[in-house]
């Protein structure tokens, strides 16, 4: 009974506490908690030592270094796609960097805010070579393995319905289970974002026996997500991403960033690296927020190469993900 009284007191005390802004929460905690995928090569994947690597995890590290001064203060919580939105809404994580597709419903009805696109992707199919399929149009009647609760699952349904083709979806929680089932022959095709297909194909033992079909059946702009209603935090994450893209455009990279801050006369670079202007102060951060992010993780181009592009085992072509002035879609507003 005394316990119950104590519980009563505790519950009243808890109600008295009020909601805090994400930035304050993160600072108080001294760590940034990011929801990431449970293992997707190139985006977020734990290596043998349990260290998370990939484009998504480095975006999180960049925000951690901008806000907390240290990329090591980023913490990663692996989430299934099913858990991810609830985890963000509930405050279990500060932001999602888990190759999440930006859609209208998610942006509005789910109480989420999409920050920026860090990877332009599209959904594709992987099939075994030698089954005589070289276009997605030939998949009528196929069994397709897919991740639960993703836009992929919905695009798949749309695609087949629009073409009056039949299909059987087999829906798993984790990407690893999807792959295991595809490998075991449960499905004729495996569908997810093309980058994901390239990444997953690496895990197959006989990877040359599988081919990725050229068809792209959807638009998949992937990017970080924050909760709706905290504009200050939204700005910080968004401009950290823009800083990395601007850095590539301005030729500022991990190796030359420190020299550039003092040596560069380019006002755009000086504003980016905090030598001039109030970019950091405008967001409640210090002047070197972007400098640290670039020094500790690199600019966007370096990230892409390291995790997805030519320096990675995935060897994905930059394609749409080139800068706007090189024929791609990446276009970050200026910092000034």
């Amino acid at each position: 009974m005394r316990i119950l009284c104590a519980a009563l007191a505790a519950s009243l005390a808890i109600t008295a506490a009020s909601a805090a802004a994400t930035l304050d929460t993160v600072r108080q905690r001294g760590a940034l908690v990011c929801g990431v995928s449970q293992g997707l090569a190139g985006f977020s994947n734990p290596d043998a030592q349990g260290r998370w690597t990939g484009l998504d995890t480095d975006i999180c590290r960049a925000v951690a270094s901008a806000v907390l001064g240290d990329a090591k203060k980023a913490r990663f919580v692996p989430l299934s796609s099913k858990e991810s939105f609830t985890a963000l809404q509930s405050g279990a994580v500060d932001m999602l960097t888990r190759n999440t597709t930006w859609t209208q419903t998610r942006d509005t009805a789910l109480g989420l805010n999409f920050v920026a696109t860090i990877f332009y992707d599209g959904q594709g199919f992987m099939v075994r070579r030698g089954v005589g399929v070289d276009s997605a149009e030939q998949l009528d009647g196929a069994t397709v393995c897919v991740n639960a609760g993703t836009t992929t699952e919905l695009n798949l349904a749309d695609y087949f319905r629009a073409r009056k083709m039949r299909y059987t979806p087999v829906v798993f929680e984790k990407s690893d289970e999807v792959l295991a089932a595809y490998q075991a022959g449960r499905c004729d095709a495996y569908t997810t974002d093309q980058s994901g297909l390239y990444a997953q194909r690496l895990k197959l033992q006989d990877r040359n026996a599988h081919t990725i079909l050229p068809d792209v059946i959807s638009k998949e702009p992937l990017g970080p997500v924050v909760r709706q209603g905290d504009d200050a935090w939204f700005d910080i994450v968004r401009w950290t991403v823009f800083a990395l893209i601007n850095a590539e455009e301005l030729g500022v990279g991990q190796t030359n960033v420190d020299g550039m801050r003092t040596a560069s006369a380019d006002p755009r670079i000086r504003r980016l690296l905090g030598a001039d202007g109030r970019a950091g102060a405008n967001m409640g951060l210090d002047a070197e927020w972007a400098l640290r992010a670039i020094r500790q993780v690199g600019n966007y181009g370096e990230l892409f190469d390291r995790h997805l592009g030519k320096a990675s085992p995935l060897m994905i072509d930059r394609g749409m993900n080139r800068l706007w002035n090189k024929g791609g879609l990446l276009y970050a507003p200026p910092i000034r």
């Binding site: 808890i14 109600t15 506490a17 009020s18 909601a19 805090a20 929460t25 905690r29 919580v77 858990e83 609830t86 985890a87 809404q89 509930s90 405050g91 279990a92």
Partner: peptide
Amino acid sequence: LFMASVMLPLFLPGGAEMDK
């Protein structure tokens, strides 16, 4: 477990946190 893992924070006041 699903409730404890992702919904519990929704029941608690904003800012209160608990280890997974």
